[in-house]
Simulated assay, not measured.
Amino acid sequence: MSTTPAVAKTNAVRAEGLWKAYGHGEAQVVALRDVSIEFATGQYTAIMGPSGSGKSTLMHCLAGLDYTDHGVVNVGDTQITGMGDKALTKMRREKIGFIFQQFNLLPTLTAEENILLPLGIAGKKPDSEWVSRIVKVLDLGDRLKHRPSELSGGQQQRVACARALASRPDVVFADEPTGNLDTKSGTEVLRFLRQSVDEFNQTIVMVTHDPVAASYADRVVILADGQIVDELQSPTAETVLDKMKHFEEIVAAKEEANQAADAGEAR
């Protein structure tokens, strides 16, 4: 009987042994402690944890916005660890999209000009069919000639989403993308991010505090004190809330496991 070989699932982003600390001596704060994680292509991951857990630091290191003290980060087949600033900037333009809480739109440009700006900076001609498809999905067709001040918060964030996907990046990093939005606008953005994974095979890595936002993801990664302490597959708002209710127990169990592993190595 013949068998079909399994197709290896590729990773859009992979990190191994990441360490990151700020400050020195007694004032030093360790933001990441030996973090290893993979993000499969076409997967939507939410990163959660309390303030100071290291989730934004992790995202910044994965996206090449911050340097690690130790460890390696790969975006696709490209190792970004050790890259010079010029090469890193070029890589971010070509392979990474960003969506921030503050939208980061240029006020003097129209929505259309904001969407196409990264492509222009990179010297690339936009794929008009692809951009039109994104604009249609985000329902921005009648807002393209408007400046940010003429758009609602939800519309501005949808423009930011379109800008992030216009270059067909390997991965989109979203840092609290619904943090400044009302419930209706936030839901629209989250639905689009989910749709971009399901229809465009986009990879999304999102930092959030919101269990409802996390429920749109394929998995939730939970951080505490710079370490991954738990993961949740196919989350719902209820299962995420339940995890966070038992957060202290999860952290204690992780610490106990670490101590047991350290004791085993000492022997």
Rank of each mutant, 00 (worst) to 15 (best):
residue 121 I to V: 06
residue 121 I to N: 06
residue 121 I to L: 10
residue 123 G to E: 01
residue 123 G to K: 02
residue 123 G to N: 01
residue 123 G to M: 02
residue 124 K to N: 03
residue 124 K to H: 04
residue 124 K to A: 04
residue 125 K to N: 14
residue 125 K to R: 10
residue 125 K to T: 05
residue 126 P to F: 01
residue 126 P to A: 01
residue 127 D to H: 00
residue 127 D to L: 01
residue 127 D to V: 01
residue 129 E to G: 12
residue 129 E to R: 10
residue 129 E to C: 08
residue 129 E to T: 09
residue 130 W to S: 15
residue 130 W to I: 03
residue 130 W to L: 03
residue 130 W to Q: 04
residue 130 W to F: 09
residue 131 V to M: 00
residue 131 V to K: 12
residue 132 S to K: 08
residue 132 S to F: 12
residue 132 S to I: 06
residue 132 S to Y: 07
residue 133 R to C: 06
residue 133 R to L: 08
residue 133 R to E: 15
residue 135 V to W: 09
residue 135 V to C: 02
residue 136 K to H: 11
residue 136 K to L: 08
residue 136 K to T: 06
residue 136 K to S: 11
residue 137 V to K: 12
residue 137 V to D: 14
residue 137 V to P: 04
residue 138 L to C: 04
residue 138 L to H: 13
residue 139 D to S: 11
residue 139 D to Q: 14
residue 140 L to V: 15
residue 140 L to M: 02
residue 141 G to I: 08
residue 142 D to M: 05
residue 142 D to Q: 09
residue 142 D to E: 15
residue 142 D to Y: 06
residue 142 D to F: 08
residue 142 D to G: 10
residue 143 R to V: 09
residue 143 R to H: 09
residue 143 R to Q: 13
residue 144 L to C: 11
residue 144 L to H: 15
residue 144 L to P: 04
residue 145 K to F: 10
residue 146 H to I: 10
residue 146 H to A: 13
residue 146 H to W: 05
residue 147 R to K: 11
residue 147 R to G: 09
residue 147 R to E: 14
residue 147 R to M: 11
residue 147 R to I: 03
residue 148 P to Y: 12
residue 148 P to M: 06
residue 148 P to E: 08
residue 148 P to T: 03
residue 149 S to L: 07
residue 149 S to H: 12
residue 149 S to W: 11
residue 150 E to T: 06
residue 151 L to T: 06
residue 151 L to Y: 06
residue 151 L to E: 03
residue 151 L to F: 05
residue 152 S to V: 14
residue 153 G to Q: 03
residue 153 G to K: 14
residue 153 G to R: 09
residue 154 G to R: 11
residue 154 G to Q: 13
residue 155 Q to N: 10
residue 155 Q to W: 14
residue 155 Q to Y: 12
residue 155 Q to G: 07
residue 156 Q to S: 05
residue 156 Q to G: 12
residue 157 Q to I: 13
residue 157 Q to Y: 07
residue 159 V to W: 14
residue 159 V to S: 14
residue 159 V to M: 08
residue 160 A to I: 04
residue 160 A to V: 01
residue 160 A to N: 04
residue 161 C to L: 11
residue 161 C to S: 09
residue 161 C to K: 05
residue 161 C to P: 01
residue 162 A to V: 02
residue 162 A to C: 13
residue 163 R to T: 00
residue 163 R to S: 02
residue 164 A to I: 03
residue 164 A to C: 00
residue 165 L to R: 08
